[in-house]
Design a protein around this nucleic acid. Structure first.
Length: 934
RNA sequence: GCCCAGGUGGUGGAAUUGGUAGACACGCUGGACUUAAAAUCCAGUGGCCAUUGUGGCCGUGCGGGUUCAAGUCCCGCCCUGGGUACCA
């Protein structure tokens, strides 16, 4: 029988489904292992060949762990809320639920063809009310907790209220929005409404006026990670800054833990680095500069309090509340004009303009608390409201932006740091500020002559002693904006009473997404939920109109997979204690600052309140590389319907045109398919390569380029087509064979034949020349056992370090060797089949069954490595002279250095290279090399 | 600007701890089988030079260095990809 992959793959996919082969339950008798893929957003385009790369890798690892005796949880689901389905709904009127459902069906069909070992009974989708009930539930929990900095932990808001009632808030160290000190009496005298307003400043999920990224085109606010260089990540629309009342999650409270706990994780250094930069910890001091003639302080943050003697002016962000207060009447008009101008400019414009200096003097002066000198206060858009305090002390001598500003407005520049061993120079002669991370202090009072690090310490201590300010650690990480003015997302379980938000009772969850007549804002400019009929509580209070963002549903999905059908809780304690956390998480690096930060935060919160037993969700994480497209080009002669082959194009004036890669194989164009592609090319003529005999009329060779895989570049390859032609086992192995998992690489179908040939060769080992199944029960020879055990060792090591491309070449070597040995012995082929089964599950199930096994091969045991078959009695040493390999010599494995030297030097070939000289030195490295120095 | 990866034949890549550079494939060339094609099988394939054969020199982005020995370690540069940014 020939290797009929179509029949075999269908048969075993059906078998796994019917026998629930991969469904798992809590089983205390076995160790657990949790392998997770980042679940996909089911887009309308379906999967291309790049998407399954990570899924294949995780599936190989899952199947391997199962063979090793682990109880493996390996689920799949869909991140189903999101913008594209909603935009499609706006265009066509089709309900996003229907679009999403169709897309999911297509995804699942495609995924099932690849033969993954998912436990499909645990499948979940974030748009399912039974699922988002728990997203809403966690939101309510966050609303009901505050962050206690003293314990570095989230605690119930009720306990906070008790403290307020007894002693006010003076002993509280909370992560909160700006808050005045109040006493117990103050608190108790507040009305319910006032108390609720105050509590909102403490809640981990809070409603507040915030500067937000507003995207007018999408009609919604976006989180920082959803904006890149002033444009929305989805759709690439301009984004502006705007103050709006929005829900936020107090993720900044967790900044320190999110940063420190990175050390515990087995993630790549580059990914940890991205998160470290995103969290952006900087150490320094917060200082207060008094405003001259007013009872008013300007709070600033600096990492360099040592340069305080070099401060010659102050700058406020135009959006700062202080602007109005410090501005004198003489400058009111100019300041207002400048503020209005900045407001009009988008973030993008401000950035593009980074080189032009702009700003405005306010007329106000501040007092430098260290020197008591008067310094002018300016406003400028190079100071951002969102970082630090929205105000800076400017040190033009040692900061390039301050330097440019000082030059422009002709403000004084003072040098306070001098490079070691140099003398101060006149700043008037400088072309730029002097980078001052190292050096010695000058012109700086009592810290003169100290080096920078000592000076920083001494300055901070002084500032604290004098009550000017305090040591402070600042984070770049902002609270996560949690409202979206969209339809297709989780509704907030929140209603408003006198404008104050209250959460629904948990018994009433899920709060289901209501029907609307259109997926657009209302005439009043409210979000689409403003169109919902009767969108209020039983008591008639209005319900929140925004919905939650995409990352809400993906923040705890890994927990829900553990216990997906539980109606009483997100995940039961017992189940959580068994599965614990994700042992291996595979997905793209694009989630580094979004999902991977949010879900760590979400998980830490659930850990604080005792719902989960691990404070980090993903122990080990691997980022698979992107599969890029490999586009092909034809070269059209300008003004003609004639195409010239790649190597001849230099003689013509041509335009390169993308051609569908499915008409091209090994860069050779199928000219007939090309003619039929588009009526425009029906009459196309071709100038072909020369044949070897010099005559024209050979092939049409296309050019190529590596680009993004995209429909518009005609370089999309659909896994369904590959499976139809070669089978899923070939697809799986070829995707792994392409190169290291983490590396980005172009998809090139050309090499796939090699893998396909390998599987057929493997199949042939089990069959005789007439294609009859034929294996022997003879005892294997030493050499056959050596081939097998060499392969067991290599495969095991490679899988453990996720080096799947090298495992595949090891399989190829093994099958080539067994073919040469004409080995068809059961004792060799059965263990080899198990080894291969995580990579190529269908063909191995089939052969396993033909060998007479009744159970699925996934229930087999991974073959034991026996080192005794690998023991060698000799080793072939490479012998090099002055580092250059010259010949090889076979020597006993246990030979000592002296004996080896003897044997080598007396060797005939060595004589030739010694040229009669005596070697100066002989280096003998056992089982490695012999090097002779002459 | 700053931070992180990476640069090896015609192509994808291998070399796990400093120890034989180019495993395994693709492609290409030649051959067998065939009326022919496909499939399959066999041989060759880093570059240059020499040759009846044995062979020699060069070679892992560039320039230096350490070492008996460097793709691998160190210093300086160039290039590609990714992250991030008026971050005080």
């Amino acid at each position: 029988m020939e290797y009929n992959f179509r029949e075999i793959e269908k048969k075993w996919q059906k078998f796994w489904e019917e026998n629930k082969t991969f469904e798992v339950e809590v089983d205390e008798s076995k160790p657990k292992y949790y392998v997770l893929d980042m679940f996909p957003y089911p887009s309308g385009a379906g999967l291309h060949v790049g998407h399954p790369l990570g899924y294949i890798a995780s599936d190989i690892y899952s199947r391997y762990k199962r063979l090793k005796g682990f109880n493996v949880l390996h689920p799949m689901g869909y991140d189903a809320f999101g913008l594209p389905a909603e935009q499609y709904a706006v265009k066509t009127g089709q309900h996003p639920a229907i679009t999403t459902d169709n897309n999911i069906k297509r995804y699942k069909e495609q995924l099932e063809k690849i033969g993954f070992s998912y436990d499909w009974s645990r499948e979940l989708r974030t748009c399912d009310p039974d699922y988002y009930k728990w997203t809403q539930w966690v939101f309510i929990e966050m609303f009901e907790h505050w962050y206690n900095n003293k314990n570095s932990k989230a605690e119930p808001i009720n306990e906070l209220i008790e403290i307020f009632e007894k002693e006010g808030n003076k002993s509280i160290d909370a992560s909160c929005n700006e808050e005045m000190i109040f006493t117990a009496d103050n608190w108790n005298a507040k009305t319910e409404k006032e108390q609720q307003k105050t509590l909102l400043n403490y809640r981990l999920a809070y409603l507040a006026d915030t500067m937000v990224n507003w995207c007018p085109e999408l009609g919604t606010v976006l989180a920082n990670d959803e904006v890149k260089e002033g444009f929305s990540v989805r759709g690439n629309h301009p984004v502006i800054q705007k103050k709006m009342k929005q829900w936020s999650l107090r993720i900044s409270a967790y900044a320190e833990r999110l940063l420190n706990d990175l050390e515990k994780l087995e993630w790549t250094d580059s990914l940890k680095e991205i998160q470290r930069n995103w969290i952006g910890r900087s150490e320094g001091a917060e200082m207060i500069f008094k405003v001259k003639g007013q009872d008013l302080g300007m709070e600033i943050f600096t990492t360099r309090p040592d340069t305080s003697w070099g401060v010659t002016f102050m700058v406020l962000a135009p959006e700062s509340d202080l602007v109005e207060k410090v501005t004198t009447s003489d400058y009111k008009k100019q300041v207002e004009d400048y503020v209005n101008e900045t407001k009009k400019r988008s973030e993008r414009e401000r950035m593009a303009d980074a080189k032009t200096v702009s700003g405005q003097f306010t007329g106000g002066y501040a007092l430098n608390p260290l020197t008591n000198e008067e310094i002018p206060i300016y406003i400028s858009d190079y100071v951002l409201m969102g970082y630090g305090t929205g105000a800076i002390m400017a040190v033009p001598g040692h900061d390039s932006r301050d330097f440019k500003f000082a030059r422009y407005f002709e403000l004084p520049i003072i040098q306070v740091v001098v490079k070691e061993g140099e003398e101060p120079t006149d700043p008037a002669t400088w072309e730029d500020s002097y980078d001052s991370k190292e050096g010695r202090m000058a012109n700086s009072g009592f810290i003169n002559d100290l080096n920078v690090n000592e000076a920083i310490e001494k300055a901070i201590n002084y500032i604290e002693e004098e009550g000017i300010g305090e040591r402070k650690i600042n984070y770049r990480l902002r609270d996560a904006i949690f409202s979206r003015q969209r339809y297709w997302g989780e509704p907030f379980p929140v209603y408003f009473k006198e404008g104050i938000p209250y959460t629904l009772s948990k018994e009433n969850l899920p709060l289901e997404l209501p029907e609307v007549d259109a997926y657009l804002p209302t005439e009043k400019g409210e979000p689409p939920l403003g169109r919902a009929i009767n969108w209020k509580t039983e008591d008639g209070y209005p319900i929140e109109l925004s919905t939650m963002p995409g990352f809400a549903g993906s923040s705890a999905y890994y927990l829900r997979y553990m216990d997906p059908k539980n109606n009483d809780t997100l995940v039961s304690k017992k189940v959580n204690e068994y599965w614990q956390d994700v042992d291996l998480y595979i997905g793209g690096t694009e989630h580094a600052t979004g999902h991977l930060v949010y879900s760590r935060y979400w998980n830490k919160f659930l850990y604080d309140i005792g719902w989960v037993c691990k404070d980090e969700p993903f122990k080990k994480l691997i980022n698979q590389g992107m599969i890029q497209g490999r586009s092909n080009f034809v070269y059209r002669i300008k003004g003609a319907n004639e195409f010239v082959s790649y190597n001849l194009k230099k003689d013509y004036d041509v335009t390169p045109i993308h051609v569908d890669v499915n008409f091209v194989s090994n860069d050779i164009l199928d000219t007939e398919a090309f003619k039929n592609w588009d009526p425009e090319y029906k009459e196309a003529k071709f100038i072909l390569e020369d044949l070897p005999d010099g005559k024209a009329g050979g092939k049409y060779i296309c050019g190529y380029a590596v680009e993004k895989m995209s429909k518009s570049l005609y370089n999309v390859v659909n896994p369904d087509d590959i499976i139809e032609q070669y089978g899923a086992d070939t697809l799986r192995m070829y995707e792994m064979f392409l190169g290291p998992l983490e590396m980005s690489k172009p998809w090139d179908t050309n090499g796939i034949d090699g893998v396909f040939k390998f599987l057929r060769k493997f199949w042939k080992l089990f069959h005789d020349e007439q294609n009859n199944f034929n294996i022997s029960d003879e005892t294997p020879s030493e050499i056959e056992l050596k081939v097998l055990h060499k392969t067991i060792k290599k495969i095991q090591e490679d899988i453990e370090r996720f080096s799947f491309n090298t495992s595949i070449s090891a399989f190829m070597i093994c099958v080539n060797e067994l073919t040469d040995l004409k080995c068809n012995k059961r004792k060799i082929l059965e263990p080899l089949t198990i080894l291969l089964s995580s990579f190529a599950p269908h063909i191995t199930e089939e052969l396993w069954q033909k060998c007479g096994n009744s159970e699925s091969i996934s229930c087999a045991k991974f073959p034991e490595l026996d080192e005794k078959y690998l023991v060698e009695s000799t080793y072939e040493y490479p012998v090099s002279f002055n580092g250059k390999m010259r010949f090889k010599i076979k020597l006993p494995i246990d030979i000592d250095a002296k004996e080896a030297e003897n044997r080598v030097l007396t060797n005939e070939q060595a004589q030739k290279w010694l040229e009669g000289k005596t070697p100066r030195k002989v280096i003998f490295v056992p089982r490695k090399i012999i090097n002779i120095v002459i």
